[in-house]
Amino acid sequence: MNNKIIISAALTGVLATRQQCPGIPYTPEEIAKEGKRAIDAGASILHIHARQDNGMPAYDVETYRRIDEEVKKLCPEAIINYSTGAIGISQEERIHQIDALQPDMAALNMGSMNYAIYSAKHKQFYHDHVFANPFKDIQFFLERMNKAGTRPEMECFDTGHIHNARPLIDMGILEPPFQFSLIMGVLGGIPATTQNLVHQVSQLPEGSHWQVIGIGKKQWRMVAAAITMGGNIRVGLEDNLYMPNGDMASSNGDLVKEATTLVRTLGYEPTSVHEAREILKLPVKQD
Rank of each mutant, 00 (worst) to 15 (best):
N3Y: 07
N3C: 07
I5A: 00
I6S: 00
S8K: 13
A10Q: 04
L11A: 00
G23S: 05
I31Y: 04
R37N: 03
R37C: 05
S44T: 12
L46A: 04
L46W: 06
H49M: 07
G55N: 02
G55W: 07
P57F: 05
T63N: 13
R65W: 06
D68Q: 09
V71A: 10
K72T: 03
K72I: 02
L74M: 10
E77N: 14
A78E: 08
T84Y: 04
G88P: 11
E93D: 10
E93N: 07
E93A: 10
E93M: 15
H96S: 13
D99A: 10
P103N: 11
P103L: 08
Y115E: 10
Y115H: 15
I117K: 14
I117A: 13
K121P: 04
Q124M: 15
Q124K: 15
F125S: 06
Y126H: 14
V130C: 08
F131V: 08
A132V: 13
D137H: 13
F140W: 12
F140N: 06
F141R: 04
R144M: 11
R144V: 03
P152L: 07
E153T: 04
C156I: 07
T159I: 07
G160C: 07
I162E: 03
A165S: 15
P167N: 14
M171S: 11
P176H: 09
P177E: 05
Q179V: 05
I183G: 00
I183P: 01
M184S: 08
G185Y: 01
T193E: 10
T194R: 10
Q195K: 11
V198H: 14
Q200R: 08
E206I: 11
H209P: 05
H209L: 11
G214Q: 01
I215P: 04
G216D: 14
G216A: 09
G231I: 01
I233G: 00
R234E: 01
E238F: 05
E238Y: 07
G253T: 03
T260L: 02
V263C: 06
V263T: 12
Y268G: 03
E269P: 01
T271L: 01
S272K: 01
S272E: 08
S272P: 00
A276V: 03
I279F: 09
P283K: 15
K285V: 10
D287H: 09
D287N: 15
